[in-house]
């Protein structure tokens, strides 16, 4: 069985740092930024462990602001 790799692209300026995507992610790929904020002052979401992403799109589904785009590749 081929390995599935995923990637998320986060619109950090639109993100409000609600943390719902971090809770929804089954692999622990996402985390809120601890050092930076966007122009509105929100600690936005980052894919700190991008290697772990499986492209399940759970984060994008629960995101209330539609900030996340998800891609998937089967090897």
């Amino acid at each position: 069985m081929g390995k599935i790799k995923g990637a998320v692209v986060i619109n950090t300026e639109r993100c409000k740092g609600c943390n719902l995507c971090v809770v929804a992610c089954p692999t622990g790929t996402l985390k809120l930024s601890e050092t930076e904020v966007n122009h509105k002052g929100y600690a936005y979401c980052c894919d700190i462990d991008a290697e772990k992403c499986i492209g399940c799109a759970s984060c994008a589904l629960v995101c209330p602001d539609g900030c996340i785009t998800v891609y998937k590749l089967k090897e």
Binding site: K5, G6, A7, V9, G55, A57, A60, L61, G66, C67, I68, T69, V70, Y71, K72, L73
Partner: peptide, 13 residues
């Protein structure tokens, strides 16, 4: 590479 070669799974409507 994943973004270029892979398929789009989800985006904002």
């Amino acid at each position: 590479e994943i973004i270029n070669k892979g398929t789009l799974v989800y985006q904002k409507p």
